[in-house]
């Protein structure tokens, strides 16, 4: 009895291909990658059971060391069922992506892009002359060393003035 080298080589190849595929942007390839990873792991669990042996059916004539270890096979069975469910779900999601976007690709997060494009200047927090937001406005505002009427100060903070970028929503580039 010896270690099954062929199984180990297949396992290594499955892991390598699986990792390569899940790094792709196409969803179908990602799914194939996940399936390969799951199967490679099943082979790994099988390998941890030790050498191949006889079926674990009790008989007085067989020594304890000659049986195969049944536990890894039970674990593999569970893991196959789980990866089956995940694969079915992923197929559903991929089909839905295709229906919605007509593309088999993972898409960028809109909100992420928005935050990335938002200028670090924020009119309400960072303006030299704070925009008047209270319900009891002051008559005059002191800012930048000069004193000026509040209405005029507020006007300078309106979108479109020099201090504020065109759109606080981050659309402007």
């Amino acid at each position: 009895m010896s270690v099954n080298l062929a199984l180990l080589i297949v396992m290594g190849a499955l892991y390598a291909c699986g990792i390569y595929l899940i790094l792709e942007r196409s969803l179908t390839r990602v799914l194939l990658g996940l399936m390969l990873l799951a199967n490679a792991t099943n082979l790994l669990i099988l390998a941890t059971g030790g050498y191949a042996g006889l079926a674990p059916l009790y008989s007085k004539d067989i020594g304890a060391g000659d049986y195969n270890d049944p536990l890894p096979q039970a674990l593999i069975l569970t893991s196959i069922v789980i990866s089956f469910a995940v694969t079915a779900f992923m197929l559903g999601i991929i089909y839905r992506t295709w229906v919605l976007a007509r593309r088999d690709e993972i898409q960028d997060d809109v909100e992420d892009l928005r935050v990335a494009e938002t200028p670090s200047f924020d009119a309400e927090d960072d303006a030299e002359i704070p925009a008047e937001t209270s319900e009891f406005p002051l008559a005059t505002v002191t800012a930048g060393g000069r004193e000026l009427p509040a209405g005029q100060a507020a006007a300078e903070e309106k979108p479109g003035s020099n201090n504020v970028p065109p759109s606080p929503e981050g659309g402007g580039k």
Binding site: I22, L34, T41, L44, I45, V86, F89, M90
Partner: peptide, 29 residues
């Protein structure tokens, strides 16, 4: 649309972490 997009990331990351967990269990065993 947005939920499917977010769901794909979530599913793939979770499955990869589960595979890692399963590999660890195999090695522990």
């Amino acid at each position: 649309g947005p939920r499917i997009r977010a769901g794909v990331t979530y599913v793939v990351v979770s499955v990869v972490s589960s595979v890692l967990f399963l590999i660890s269990i195999a090695m522990v065993y």
